[in-house]
């Protein structure tokens, strides 16, 4: 293992220890288990009260549920908790200087923390997305897990969750690093995510929901008032999300590399 990898692992390990403090873990697990619990209730109701409407309608319902509850709710608040709790969290706790006083270049501190946050977010939210889609399959009456179409859809939702964690993670890491009080920006961004279908195409580029919606395994209606943007191919959307991620992490690295220690709140 190279010195850089060892250092990144050291930073990540420290970050996991911080993130997995009892109170935080409970909240994150609660968030991750939310969609699984909803799908479990739905499966039970289907079992109890008879078959659901039809497979294609149900798949769209799950698609909307994923965009609404999972992306805008679980991924948004889960990533806000994890990534705002990284550098901003350390600044608020006044423990950031311990990291700055180690022989690790500052860019590696940021990257190490980001990687740790992403792995934690994936472990929670990608798994819960896959699990909720798998349980949803039970509501359709026929499990059909061997069906390549079902497998593809399940993996599609997991991939969307993974990309969502990358992009939201980078956004919250950057916001937490650049701003002393990121609360207002988070609130505005949350609103933006809910009304992204009303935004003109240029502003849609700021929305993670916009990209993830394009990647949805089932086509989703955006309602009668939506301002529709030109649909883009999946590879383009994925590259856009990765660029979005790089910009966010890059901003955080830039800020931390130049910053002086400042614990004023």
């Amino acid at each position: 293992m190279s010195a850089t990898s060892r250092r990144l692992m050291g930073v990540a390990r420290l970050e996991w220890r911080r993130q997995l403090a009892p109170g935080r873990t409970l909240w994150l697990v609660f968030l991750a288990m939310g969609p699984v619990a909803v799908m479990a209730i739905m499966a039970w109701m289907t079992h109890k009260f008879g078959p659901p409407p039809g497979t294609s309608e149900m798949r769209e319902i799950f698609g909307q549920f994923f965009q609404g509850m999972v992306v805008r709710g679980v991924l948004f608040f889960g990533c806000a908790t994890i990534f705002l709790g990284q550098i901003r969290g350390e600044l608020d706790q006044r423990s950031w200087h311990y990291s700055l006083l180690t022989p690790i270049p500052r860019w590696q501190l940021v990257i190490g923390k980001y990687i740790a946050g992403v792995l934690l977010a994936w472990a929670l939210f990608v798994v819960s997305s896959g699990l909720s889609r798998a349980i949803f399959q039970l509501t359709l009456g026929t499990p059909g897990f061997a069906d390549p179409g079902v497998q593809k859809e399940l993996l599609g939702y997991m991939a969307m969750a993974a990309l969502g964690c990358l992009a939201y993670g980078a956004f919250f890491l950057a916001v937490g690093t650049l701003l002393r009080g990121p609360g207002y920006i988070v609130a505005v961004y949350f609103l933006l995510e809910w009304i992204q279908f009303l935004l003109p195409p240029g502003l849609k580029q700021l929305s993670v929901v916009h990209y993830l919606r394009t990647l949805s395994p089932v086509p989703l209606s955006e309602g009668p008032f939506a301002l529709l943007a030109e649909p883009s191919p999946a590879w383009w959307v994925v590259s856009q999300l990765l660029i979005y991620t790089l910009v966010g992490v890059g901003l955080a690295v830039w800020k931390v590399s130049r910053a002086e220690l400042d614990y004023r709140s």
Partner: peptide
């Protein structure tokens, strides 16, 4: 007078020592 959350004295010191390789 501040420390990372939830650590014992030994964990606190050992965790940062690991960042020294």
């Amino acid at each position: 007078d501040s420390f990372p959350r939830g650590v014992t004295g030994r964990q606190f010191i050992a965790a940062y020592l690991r960042l020294h390789g």
